[in-house]
Design a protein around this nucleic acid. Structure first.
Lengths: 236, 236
DNA sequence: ACCTGAACACCGTTCAAGT
DNA sequence: ACCTGAACACCGTTCAAGT
Protein backbone atom coordinates (compact mmCIF):
# COMPACT_ATOMS: atom_id res chain seq x y z
CA UNK A 1 0.00 0.00 0.00
CA UNK A 2 1.40 3.44 -0.93
CA UNK A 3 1.78 5.70 2.09
CA UNK A 4 -0.17 8.91 1.62
CA UNK A 5 1.59 11.97 3.06
CA UNK A 6 -0.16 13.02 6.26
CA UNK A 7 -1.52 16.56 6.23
CA UNK A 8 -0.26 18.53 9.27
CA UNK A 9 -3.76 18.88 10.77
CA UNK A 10 -4.16 15.11 10.98
CA UNK A 11 -2.32 12.88 13.44
CA UNK A 12 -2.39 9.82 11.15
CA UNK A 13 -3.23 9.01 7.55
CA UNK A 14 -6.84 7.98 7.06
CA UNK A 15 -7.12 5.32 4.33
CA UNK A 16 -10.42 5.23 2.46
CA UNK A 17 -10.82 1.56 3.24
CA UNK A 18 -9.74 -0.09 6.49
CA UNK A 19 -6.70 -2.23 5.82
CA UNK A 20 -7.51 -5.88 5.17
CA UNK A 21 -6.49 -8.30 7.91
CA UNK A 22 -7.48 -11.70 9.22
CA UNK A 23 -9.15 -10.13 12.26
CA UNK A 24 -11.20 -7.82 10.05
CA UNK A 25 -12.28 -10.69 7.82
CA UNK A 26 -13.32 -12.81 10.81
CA UNK A 27 -15.20 -9.89 12.33
CA UNK A 28 -17.05 -9.26 9.08
CA UNK A 29 -17.90 -12.93 8.72
CA UNK A 30 -19.26 -13.02 12.26
CA UNK A 31 -21.45 -10.01 11.53
CA UNK A 32 -22.95 -11.68 8.47
CA UNK A 33 -23.46 -14.92 10.40
CA UNK A 34 -25.30 -13.12 13.19
CA UNK A 35 -27.49 -11.13 10.85
CA UNK A 36 -28.34 -13.71 8.20
CA UNK A 37 -26.95 -17.11 9.15
CA UNK A 38 -24.39 -19.50 7.74
CA UNK A 39 -26.09 -19.75 4.34
CA UNK A 40 -25.42 -16.07 3.71
CA UNK A 41 -21.82 -16.29 4.86
CA UNK A 42 -19.88 -16.79 1.63
CA UNK A 43 -16.35 -15.71 0.77
CA UNK A 44 -17.78 -13.47 -1.90
CA UNK A 45 -20.20 -11.87 0.51
CA UNK A 46 -17.46 -11.14 3.05
CA UNK A 47 -15.34 -9.63 0.29
CA UNK A 48 -18.26 -7.51 -0.92
CA UNK A 49 -18.82 -6.21 2.61
CA UNK A 50 -15.14 -5.22 2.71
CA UNK A 51 -15.41 -3.60 -0.73
CA UNK A 52 -12.90 -5.90 -2.37
CA UNK A 53 -12.85 -9.03 -4.52
CA UNK A 54 -13.08 -12.57 -3.12
CA UNK A 55 -9.52 -13.40 -4.17
CA UNK A 56 -8.15 -10.80 -1.75
CA UNK A 57 -9.31 -12.82 1.25
CA UNK A 58 -7.02 -15.72 0.39
CA UNK A 59 -3.96 -13.73 1.44
CA UNK A 60 -5.22 -13.87 5.05
CA UNK A 61 -7.21 -17.08 5.27
CA UNK A 62 -6.39 -20.28 3.45
CA UNK A 63 -9.96 -21.27 2.67
CA UNK A 64 -13.56 -21.01 3.82
CA UNK A 65 -13.22 -23.84 6.32
CA UNK A 66 -10.41 -22.01 8.10
CA UNK A 67 -12.47 -18.84 8.20
CA UNK A 68 -15.37 -20.72 9.80
CA UNK A 69 -13.04 -22.31 12.36
CA UNK A 70 -11.70 -18.88 13.28
CA UNK A 71 -15.20 -17.47 13.64
CA UNK A 72 -16.23 -20.44 15.76
CA UNK A 73 -13.37 -19.88 18.15
CA UNK A 74 -14.27 -16.22 18.55
CA UNK A 75 -17.78 -17.35 19.48
CA UNK A 76 -16.41 -19.83 22.04
CA UNK A 77 -14.56 -16.86 23.53
CA UNK A 78 -17.91 -15.51 24.73
CA UNK A 79 -18.40 -18.44 27.09
CA UNK A 80 -17.82 -17.33 30.68
CA UNK A 81 -16.34 -19.90 33.01
CA UNK A 82 -17.08 -19.68 36.75
CA UNK A 83 -14.38 -20.27 39.37
CA UNK A 84 -13.84 -23.99 39.54
CA UNK A 85 -15.33 -25.84 42.52
CA UNK A 86 -14.77 -29.62 42.37
CA UNK A 87 -17.07 -30.31 45.33
CA UNK A 88 -20.01 -29.23 43.23
CA UNK A 89 -19.12 -30.62 39.81
CA UNK A 90 -22.66 -31.46 38.73
CA UNK A 91 -24.36 -28.07 39.03
CA UNK A 92 -21.17 -26.48 37.71
CA UNK A 93 -20.98 -28.62 34.62
CA UNK A 94 -24.69 -28.09 34.13
CA UNK A 95 -24.22 -24.32 34.32
CA UNK A 96 -21.36 -24.55 31.82
CA UNK A 97 -23.53 -26.52 29.39
CA UNK A 98 -26.37 -24.00 29.62
CA UNK A 99 -23.95 -21.10 29.13
CA UNK A 100 -22.23 -22.72 26.15
CA UNK A 101 -25.59 -23.61 24.59
CA UNK A 102 -26.84 -20.06 25.06
CA UNK A 103 -23.72 -18.58 23.45
CA UNK A 104 -23.87 -20.95 20.46
CA UNK A 105 -27.60 -20.34 19.99
CA UNK A 106 -27.01 -16.57 19.91
CA UNK A 107 -24.91 -17.05 16.76
CA UNK A 108 -27.35 -18.82 14.47
CA UNK A 109 -26.15 -22.10 12.92
CA UNK A 110 -22.42 -21.67 13.62
CA UNK A 111 -22.52 -24.93 15.66
CA UNK A 112 -22.45 -26.77 12.36
CA UNK A 113 -18.75 -25.92 12.32
CA UNK A 114 -18.17 -27.80 15.58
CA UNK A 115 -19.87 -30.88 14.12
CA UNK A 116 -17.80 -30.67 10.95
CA UNK A 117 -14.42 -30.95 12.66
CA UNK A 118 -12.71 -31.10 16.04
CA UNK A 119 -12.36 -27.48 17.21
CA UNK A 120 -8.76 -26.74 18.21
CA UNK A 121 -8.65 -22.96 18.54
CA UNK A 122 -7.44 -21.24 21.73
CA UNK A 123 -10.94 -20.87 23.15
CA UNK A 124 -11.80 -24.49 22.41
CA UNK A 125 -8.74 -25.40 24.47
CA UNK A 126 -9.80 -23.01 27.21
CA UNK A 127 -13.24 -24.61 27.67
CA UNK A 128 -11.79 -28.11 27.21
CA UNK A 129 -9.21 -27.48 29.92
CA UNK A 130 -11.96 -26.22 32.22
CA UNK A 131 -14.23 -29.25 31.78
CA UNK A 132 -11.39 -31.74 32.08
CA UNK A 133 -10.08 -30.08 35.22
CA UNK A 134 -13.54 -29.98 36.79
CA UNK A 135 -14.25 -33.68 36.21
CA UNK A 136 -10.80 -35.00 37.11
CA UNK A 137 -10.50 -32.93 40.27
CA UNK A 138 -13.97 -34.20 41.21
CA UNK A 139 -12.63 -37.74 41.08
CA UNK A 140 -13.39 -39.01 37.56
CA UNK A 141 -10.75 -41.20 35.87
CA UNK A 142 -9.02 -39.28 33.03
CA UNK A 143 -10.25 -41.53 30.22
CA UNK A 144 -13.82 -41.22 31.48
CA UNK A 145 -13.36 -37.47 31.74
CA UNK A 146 -12.02 -37.28 28.19
CA UNK A 147 -14.94 -39.25 26.77
CA UNK A 148 -17.45 -37.38 28.93
CA UNK A 149 -16.22 -33.98 27.79
CA UNK A 150 -16.25 -35.13 24.18
CA UNK A 151 -19.79 -36.48 24.38
CA UNK A 152 -21.16 -33.50 26.27
CA UNK A 153 -19.62 -31.13 23.71
CA UNK A 154 -21.15 -33.12 20.87
CA UNK A 155 -24.54 -32.98 22.56
CA UNK A 156 -24.39 -29.22 23.11
CA UNK A 157 -23.30 -28.47 19.55
CA UNK A 158 -25.72 -31.00 18.08
CA UNK A 159 -28.72 -29.54 19.86
CA UNK A 160 -27.68 -25.96 19.12
CA UNK A 161 -27.36 -26.81 15.43
CA UNK A 162 -30.67 -28.66 15.28
CA UNK A 163 -32.41 -25.80 17.07
CA UNK A 164 -30.89 -23.21 14.75
CA UNK A 165 -32.31 -24.96 11.70
CA UNK A 166 -35.81 -23.80 12.58
CA UNK A 167 -34.66 -20.21 12.43
CA UNK A 168 -32.78 -20.86 9.19
CA UNK A 169 -35.95 -22.23 7.59
CA UNK A 170 -37.96 -19.35 8.93
CA UNK A 171 -35.50 -16.91 7.37
CA UNK A 172 -35.60 -18.83 4.10
CA UNK A 173 -39.38 -18.38 4.06
CA UNK A 174 -39.02 -14.68 4.72
CA UNK A 175 -40.84 -14.82 8.07
CA UNK A 176 -39.54 -13.26 11.26
CA UNK A 177 -41.71 -14.19 14.26
CA UNK A 178 -40.01 -17.22 15.88
CA UNK A 179 -42.89 -17.82 18.30
CA UNK A 180 -45.48 -17.96 15.52
CA UNK A 181 -43.24 -20.05 13.29
CA UNK A 182 -42.69 -22.72 15.95
CA UNK A 183 -46.42 -22.80 16.70
CA UNK A 184 -47.19 -23.27 13.02
CA UNK A 185 -44.56 -25.94 12.60
CA UNK A 186 -45.69 -27.91 15.65
CA UNK A 187 -49.29 -27.60 14.48
CA UNK A 188 -48.39 -29.15 11.13
CA UNK A 189 -46.63 -32.10 12.78
CA UNK A 190 -49.60 -32.55 15.10
CA UNK A 191 -52.04 -32.66 12.19
CA UNK A 192 -49.81 -35.13 10.41
CA UNK A 193 -49.64 -37.44 13.44
CA UNK A 194 -53.42 -37.17 13.81
CA UNK A 195 -53.85 -38.40 10.26
CA UNK A 196 -51.80 -41.57 10.80
CA UNK A 197 -53.47 -45.01 10.88
CA UNK A 198 -54.00 -45.83 14.57
CA UNK A 199 -53.51 -49.57 14.13
CA UNK A 200 -50.08 -49.14 12.54
CA UNK A 201 -48.84 -46.43 14.91
CA UNK A 202 -50.72 -47.01 18.18
CA UNK A 203 -48.12 -45.44 20.46
CA UNK A 204 -47.44 -42.33 18.38
CA UNK A 205 -51.11 -41.59 17.82
CA UNK A 206 -51.84 -42.12 21.54
CA UNK A 207 -49.25 -39.57 22.66
CA UNK A 208 -49.35 -36.74 20.17
CA UNK A 209 -49.28 -34.00 22.81
CA UNK A 210 -46.12 -35.35 24.40
CA UNK A 211 -44.44 -35.87 21.03
CA UNK A 212 -45.07 -32.32 19.89
CA UNK A 213 -44.09 -30.38 23.01
CA UNK A 214 -42.65 -27.20 21.53
CA UNK A 215 -40.27 -26.31 24.38
CA UNK A 216 -36.82 -26.70 22.86
CA UNK A 217 -35.03 -25.49 25.97
CA UNK A 218 -36.78 -28.16 28.11
CA UNK A 219 -35.71 -30.83 25.63
CA UNK A 220 -32.13 -29.62 25.78
CA UNK A 221 -32.09 -29.67 29.57
CA UNK A 222 -33.73 -33.09 29.66
CA UNK A 223 -30.99 -34.64 27.54
CA UNK A 224 -28.35 -32.74 29.47
CA UNK A 225 -29.64 -34.27 32.71
CA UNK A 226 -29.65 -37.76 31.19
CA UNK A 227 -25.95 -37.33 30.40
CA UNK A 228 -25.08 -35.79 33.78
CA UNK A 229 -26.86 -38.69 35.49
CA UNK A 230 -24.72 -41.15 33.56
CA UNK A 231 -21.58 -39.22 34.43
CA UNK A 232 -22.50 -39.26 38.12
CA UNK A 233 -22.57 -43.06 37.94
CA UNK A 234 -18.96 -43.00 36.69
CA UNK A 235 -17.73 -40.54 39.29
CA UNK A 236 -15.20 -41.73 41.92
CA UNK B 1 -43.58 -40.13 -24.18
CA UNK B 2 -44.37 -41.59 -27.63
CA UNK B 3 -45.14 -45.29 -27.48
CA UNK B 4 -42.86 -47.28 -29.76
CA UNK B 5 -44.60 -50.22 -31.49
CA UNK B 6 -43.47 -53.45 -29.86
CA UNK B 7 -41.81 -55.94 -32.19
CA UNK B 8 -43.49 -59.36 -31.96
CA UNK B 9 -40.35 -61.02 -30.53
CA UNK B 10 -40.41 -58.67 -27.50
CA UNK B 11 -42.98 -58.89 -24.72
CA UNK B 12 -42.74 -55.14 -23.91
CA UNK B 13 -41.29 -52.00 -25.46
CA UNK B 14 -37.74 -51.24 -24.26
CA UNK B 15 -37.17 -47.49 -24.01
CA UNK B 16 -33.60 -46.29 -24.51
CA UNK B 17 -33.65 -44.53 -21.15
CA UNK B 18 -35.49 -45.85 -18.10
CA UNK B 19 -38.53 -43.68 -17.47
CA UNK B 20 -37.95 -40.90 -14.97
CA UNK B 21 -39.71 -41.34 -11.64
CA UNK B 22 -39.32 -40.25 -8.04
CA UNK B 23 -38.13 -43.72 -7.04
CA UNK B 24 -35.47 -43.71 -9.75
CA UNK B 25 -34.26 -40.26 -8.75
CA UNK B 26 -34.03 -41.28 -5.09
CA UNK B 27 -32.22 -44.48 -5.99
CA UNK B 28 -29.72 -42.57 -8.12
CA UNK B 29 -29.16 -40.02 -5.38
CA UNK B 30 -28.53 -42.79 -2.86
CA UNK B 31 -25.98 -44.36 -5.18
CA UNK B 32 -24.06 -41.09 -5.51
CA UNK B 33 -24.24 -40.54 -1.74
CA UNK B 34 -22.82 -43.98 -1.03
CA UNK B 35 -20.04 -43.68 -3.56
CA UNK B 36 -18.94 -40.08 -3.08
CA UNK B 37 -20.77 -38.49 -0.17
CA UNK B 38 -23.24 -35.65 0.28
CA UNK B 39 -20.95 -33.05 -1.31
CA UNK B 40 -21.12 -34.87 -4.63
CA UNK B 41 -24.90 -35.28 -4.44
CA UNK B 42 -26.21 -32.33 -6.45
CA UNK B 43 -29.38 -32.04 -8.48
CA UNK B 44 -27.24 -31.56 -11.57
CA UNK B 45 -25.22 -34.66 -10.81
CA UNK B 46 -28.33 -36.81 -10.33
CA UNK B 47 -29.72 -35.47 -13.61
CA UNK B 48 -26.43 -36.19 -15.38
CA UNK B 49 -26.46 -39.77 -14.09
CA UNK B 50 -29.98 -40.14 -15.50
CA UNK B 51 -28.92 -38.60 -18.81
CA UNK B 52 -31.24 -35.64 -18.57
CA UNK B 53 -31.16 -31.99 -17.52
CA UNK B 54 -31.53 -30.79 -13.92
CA UNK B 55 -34.86 -29.14 -14.64
CA UNK B 56 -36.43 -32.52 -15.38
CA UNK B 57 -36.08 -33.63 -11.76
CA UNK B 58 -38.41 -30.91 -10.55
CA UNK B 59 -41.41 -32.70 -12.01
CA UNK B 60 -40.91 -35.48 -9.42
CA UNK B 61 -39.31 -33.77 -6.46
CA UNK B 62 -40.06 -30.24 -5.29
CA UNK B 63 -36.49 -29.34 -4.33
CA UNK B 64 -33.18 -30.71 -3.12
CA UNK B 65 -34.26 -30.76 0.52
CA UNK B 66 -37.19 -33.04 -0.31
CA UNK B 67 -34.89 -35.35 -2.26
CA UNK B 68 -32.55 -35.62 0.73
CA UNK B 69 -35.48 -36.33 3.06
CA UNK B 70 -36.65 -39.11 0.75
CA UNK B 71 -33.17 -40.62 0.59
CA UNK B 72 -32.85 -40.40 4.36
CA UNK B 73 -36.07 -42.32 4.85
CA UNK B 74 -34.92 -45.07 2.48
CA UNK B 75 -31.78 -45.37 4.62
CA UNK B 76 -33.84 -45.59 7.82
CA UNK B 77 -35.66 -48.46 6.11
CA UNK B 78 -32.52 -50.55 6.47
CA UNK B 79 -32.75 -50.50 10.27
CA UNK B 80 -33.92 -53.91 11.51
CA UNK B 81 -36.07 -53.89 14.63
CA UNK B 82 -36.04 -56.95 16.92
CA UNK B 83 -39.23 -58.33 18.48
CA UNK B 84 -40.15 -55.99 21.29
CA UNK B 85 -39.46 -57.23 24.84
CA UNK B 86 -40.33 -54.64 27.52
CA UNK B 87 -38.71 -56.65 30.33
CA UNK B 88 -35.34 -56.00 28.75
CA UNK B 89 -35.68 -52.44 27.54
CA UNK B 90 -32.08 -51.42 28.21
CA UNK B 91 -30.16 -53.96 26.13
CA UNK B 92 -32.88 -53.70 23.50
CA UNK B 93 -32.67 -49.94 23.17
CA UNK B 94 -28.88 -50.25 23.19
CA UNK B 95 -29.03 -52.77 20.35
CA UNK B 96 -31.36 -50.47 18.43
CA UNK B 97 -28.95 -47.55 18.84
CA UNK B 98 -25.99 -49.60 17.60
CA UNK B 99 -27.98 -50.87 14.64
CA UNK B 100 -29.24 -47.39 13.69
CA UNK B 101 -25.74 -45.96 14.06
CA UNK B 102 -24.28 -48.69 11.90
CA UNK B 103 -26.86 -48.14 9.17
CA UNK B 104 -26.36 -44.36 9.15
CA UNK B 105 -22.58 -44.73 9.12
CA UNK B 106 -22.80 -47.03 6.09
CA UNK B 107 -24.26 -44.15 4.09
CA UNK B 108 -21.61 -41.48 4.50
CA UNK B 109 -22.76 -38.10 5.79
CA UNK B 110 -26.49 -38.56 5.18
CA UNK B 111 -27.10 -38.02 8.94
CA UNK B 112 -26.70 -34.32 8.28
CA UNK B 113 -30.23 -34.51 6.89
CA UNK B 114 -31.59 -35.73 10.23
CA UNK B 115 -29.95 -32.80 12.01
CA UNK B 116 -31.31 -30.33 9.46
CA UNK B 117 -34.97 -31.15 10.08
CA UNK B 118 -37.31 -33.44 11.96
CA UNK B 119 -37.56 -36.61 9.85
CA UNK B 120 -41.20 -37.55 9.21
CA UNK B 121 -41.02 -40.23 6.52
CA UNK B 122 -42.68 -43.64 6.95
CA UNK B 123 -39.49 -45.26 8.22
CA UNK B 124 -38.83 -42.46 10.69
CA UNK B 125 -42.32 -43.16 12.06
CA UNK B 126 -41.61 -46.88 12.13
CA UNK B 127 -38.49 -46.54 14.30
CA UNK B 128 -40.12 -43.80 16.40
CA UNK B 129 -43.12 -46.02 17.10
CA UNK B 130 -40.76 -48.83 18.10
CA UNK B 131 -38.74 -46.78 20.57
CA UNK B 132 -41.81 -45.14 22.10
CA UNK B 133 -43.54 -48.48 22.53
CA UNK B 134 -40.46 -50.05 24.10
CA UNK B 135 -40.01 -47.30 26.67
CA UNK B 136 -43.66 -46.82 27.57
CA UNK B 137 -44.37 -50.53 27.89
CA UNK B 138 -41.29 -50.73 30.13
CA UNK B 139 -42.89 -48.22 32.48
CA UNK B 140 -41.60 -44.83 31.41
CA UNK B 141 -44.06 -41.89 31.52
CA UNK B 142 -45.02 -40.80 27.96
CA UNK B 143 -43.47 -37.32 28.17
CA UNK B 144 -40.19 -38.80 29.41
CA UNK B 145 -40.35 -41.39 26.64
CA UNK B 146 -40.94 -38.69 24.02
CA UNK B 147 -38.00 -36.60 25.22
CA UNK B 148 -35.79 -39.67 25.62
CA UNK B 149 -36.46 -40.87 22.08
CA UNK B 150 -35.83 -37.40 20.74
CA UNK B 151 -32.53 -37.00 22.60
CA UNK B 152 -31.30 -40.47 21.76
CA UNK B 153 -32.08 -39.91 18.08
CA UNK B 154 -30.21 -36.61 18.13
CA UNK B 155 -27.22 -38.30 19.72
CA UNK B 156 -27.13 -41.12 17.18
CA UNK B 157 -27.42 -38.80 14.20
CA UNK B 158 -25.00 -36.26 15.68
CA UNK B 159 -22.30 -38.84 16.26
CA UNK B 160 -22.82 -40.47 12.87
CA UNK B 161 -22.51 -37.09 11.17
CA UNK B 162 -19.42 -36.09 13.13
CA UNK B 163 -17.80 -39.45 12.41
CA UNK B 164 -18.59 -39.23 8.70
CA UNK B 165 -16.76 -35.91 8.43
CA UNK B 166 -13.41 -37.65 8.78
CA UNK B 167 -14.17 -39.72 5.71
CA UNK B 168 -15.44 -36.68 3.85
CA UNK B 169 -12.16 -34.87 4.51
CA UNK B 170 -10.18 -37.94 3.56
CA UNK B 171 -12.05 -38.08 0.25
CA UNK B 172 -11.49 -34.36 -0.29
CA UNK B 173 -7.76 -34.98 0.08
CA UNK B 174 -7.90 -37.83 -2.39
CA UNK B 175 -6.80 -40.46 0.13
CA UNK B 176 -8.56 -43.75 0.67
CA UNK B 177 -7.10 -45.64 3.66
CA UNK B 178 -9.36 -44.78 6.65
CA UNK B 179 -7.06 -46.50 9.16
CA UNK B 180 -4.01 -44.52 8.04
CA UNK B 181 -5.95 -41.27 7.82
CA UNK B 182 -7.26 -41.54 11.40
CA UNK B 183 -3.77 -42.38 12.64
CA UNK B 184 -2.33 -39.35 10.88
CA UNK B 185 -5.08 -37.08 12.13
CA UNK B 186 -4.75 -38.25 15.73
CA UNK B 187 -0.97 -37.87 15.48
CA UNK B 188 -1.34 -34.24 14.43
CA UNK B 189 -3.65 -33.45 17.34
CA UNK B 190 -1.24 -35.21 19.71
CA UNK B 191 1.69 -33.14 18.46
CA UNK B 192 -0.36 -30.00 18.81
CA UNK B 193 -1.33 -30.80 22.41
CA UNK B 194 2.29 -31.61 23.16
CA UNK B 195 3.30 -28.15 21.98
CA UNK B 196 0.91 -26.33 24.35
CA UNK B 197 2.20 -24.37 27.34
CA UNK B 198 1.94 -26.67 30.35
CA UNK B 199 1.19 -23.92 32.82
CA UNK B 200 -1.79 -22.64 30.85
CA UNK B 201 -3.24 -26.08 30.01
CA UNK B 202 -2.09 -28.38 32.82
CA UNK B 203 -4.94 -30.87 32.52
CA UNK B 204 -4.92 -31.23 28.75
CA UNK B 205 -1.14 -31.62 28.56
CA UNK B 206 -1.20 -34.16 31.40
CA UNK B 207 -3.73 -36.42 29.64
CA UNK B 208 -2.88 -36.36 25.96
CA UNK B 209 -3.21 -40.12 25.51
CA UNK B 210 -6.75 -40.16 26.90
CA UNK B 211 -7.76 -37.10 24.88
CA UNK B 212 -6.58 -38.59 21.60
CA UNK B 213 -7.98 -42.10 21.87
CA UNK B 214 -8.79 -42.90 18.24
CA UNK B 215 -11.59 -45.42 18.86
CA UNK B 216 -14.70 -43.69 17.52
CA UNK B 217 -16.94 -46.66 18.20
CA UNK B 218 -15.89 -46.74 21.89
CA UNK B 219 -16.71 -43.03 22.19
CA UNK B 220 -20.13 -43.60 20.66
CA UNK B 221 -20.91 -46.45 23.03
CA UNK B 222 -19.63 -44.47 25.99
CA UNK B 223 -22.05 -41.62 25.33
CA UNK B 224 -24.84 -44.07 24.57
CA UNK B 225 -24.35 -45.67 27.97
CA UNK B 226 -24.37 -42.28 29.69
CA UNK B 227 -27.77 -41.61 28.16
CA UNK B 228 -29.14 -45.09 28.91
CA UNK B 229 -28.00 -44.68 32.52
CA UNK B 230 -29.95 -41.44 32.76
CA UNK B 231 -33.01 -43.07 31.22
CA UNK B 232 -32.83 -45.92 33.72
CA UNK B 233 -33.09 -43.35 36.52
CA UNK B 234 -36.36 -42.11 34.99
CA UNK B 235 -37.86 -45.57 34.50
CA UNK B 236 -40.96 -46.65 36.46
C1' DA C 1 -48.44 -34.35 -17.58
C1' DC C 2 -43.92 -34.58 -18.31
C1' DC C 3 -39.66 -33.06 -20.16
C1' DT C 4 -36.32 -29.74 -22.12
C1' DG C 5 -32.74 -25.82 -23.16
C1' DA C 6 -31.49 -21.77 -21.68
C1' DA C 7 -30.99 -18.54 -18.36
C1' DC C 8 -30.55 -16.31 -13.64
C1' DA C 9 -28.18 -15.53 -9.69
C1' DC C 10 -25.17 -17.39 -7.23
C1' DC C 11 -20.75 -20.46 -5.27
C1' DG C 12 -15.13 -21.50 -3.75
C1' DT C 13 -10.80 -21.21 -5.52
C1' DT C 14 -6.81 -20.33 -8.74
C1' DC C 15 -3.70 -17.71 -11.30
C1' DA C 16 -1.15 -14.38 -13.81
C1' DA C 17 -0.49 -9.68 -13.38
C1' DG C 18 0.09 -5.67 -10.87
C1' DT C 19 1.97 -2.63 -6.88
C1' DA D 1 3.86 -9.16 0.60
C1' DC D 2 -0.43 -7.99 -0.53
C1' DC D 3 -4.10 -7.14 -3.67
C1' DT D 4 -6.69 -7.49 -8.04
C1' DG D 5 -9.60 -8.87 -12.37
C1' DA D 6 -10.75 -12.47 -14.79
C1' DA D 7 -11.59 -17.02 -15.30
C1' DC D 8 -12.74 -22.01 -14.16
C1' DA D 9 -15.75 -25.29 -12.77
C1' DC D 10 -19.33 -25.69 -10.45
C1' DC D 11 -24.32 -24.81 -7.72
C1' DG D 12 -30.20 -24.77 -7.11
C1' DT D 13 -34.07 -23.19 -9.25
C1' DT D 14 -37.25 -20.97 -12.71
C1' DC D 15 -39.55 -20.43 -16.91
C1' DA D 16 -41.20 -20.43 -21.48
C1' DA D 17 -41.51 -23.72 -24.93
C1' DG D 18 -42.22 -28.15 -26.56
C1' DT D 19 -44.61 -32.97 -26.78
Amino acid sequence: MTTVPTPPWRKSPRPMKPQLSQALIVETGLRILDAEGLDALSMRRVAQELETGPASLYAHVSNKEELLDLIYDVVLGEIRLPELDPDDWRPQLRAYALEAHRVLTRHNDISKTALAGVPTGPNALRVGEYMMRLLISAGMPPLDASFSVDRLSLYIAGDAYEGSQHFAKMRAQGLDDPEAYIQGFVGQIRDYYQSLPRDQFPTITAHIAELTDPDGEARFEYGLDLILEGMAARMK
